[in-house]
Amino acid sequence: MNFDVITSYIPLYTEAFFLTIRIGWTGIGLALFIGVFVAFAQHFRVPVLARIAGIYVELFRNTPLLCQLFFLYFGLPKIGITIPAETCGTLGLGLLGGSYMAEVFRSGLGSIPVTQEEGALALGLTRRQMFTYVVFPEALSLSVPGIVGNMIFLLKETSVFSAISLMDLMFTAKDLIGLYYNTTEALFLLVIFYIIMLLPVSVLGSILENKVKIRTYGA
């Protein structure tokens, strides 16, 4: 392992790192938004929307991200819809993540016992207050482990962006291997940067899960 090579690669990786983080977290934000929206549509059985939401979730949960990105990035321009690579990445990640997040929120909402709703109504809360102050917060805390798991999953999925020529960490590593053949150094940095990106999320996620768990059982 040649450390001069490693030092000279670091700036390239840092740049790629920030691009990956930016797309990753924007995608996760979008995924959370879509997820909540879709879960609500399904939970409240909104007539047409619930049906569409169901099809969307099944379609995107059962296909790989790489396939979705190829369709968005190479397929859609042929019928006149051109999306820039970065938007494509964010959108693809958001759509994929949205379907996973929706399932998490939906099962969270579904596992709140009816007694909670009845109790809230008996205390004189309106249905809207019941949902915003009782059911939703409880469902959210039940969903935390699933949300954290999905966040890590989505951040890992960013590694396929290199296929639609986004200059992310994977692309940089592949490029450097091809150019200079310093495979060991390039892969070493790749691993280091992914650890920097994901280890904090994994650790903070576990801490958050434990916090919420205590609150749920109200000891």
Partner: peptide, 8 residues
């Protein structure tokens, strides 16, 4: 396995 992308 949890934090390393399969591609890496």
């Amino acid at each position: 396995v949890r934090i390393m992308p399969q591609m890496v």
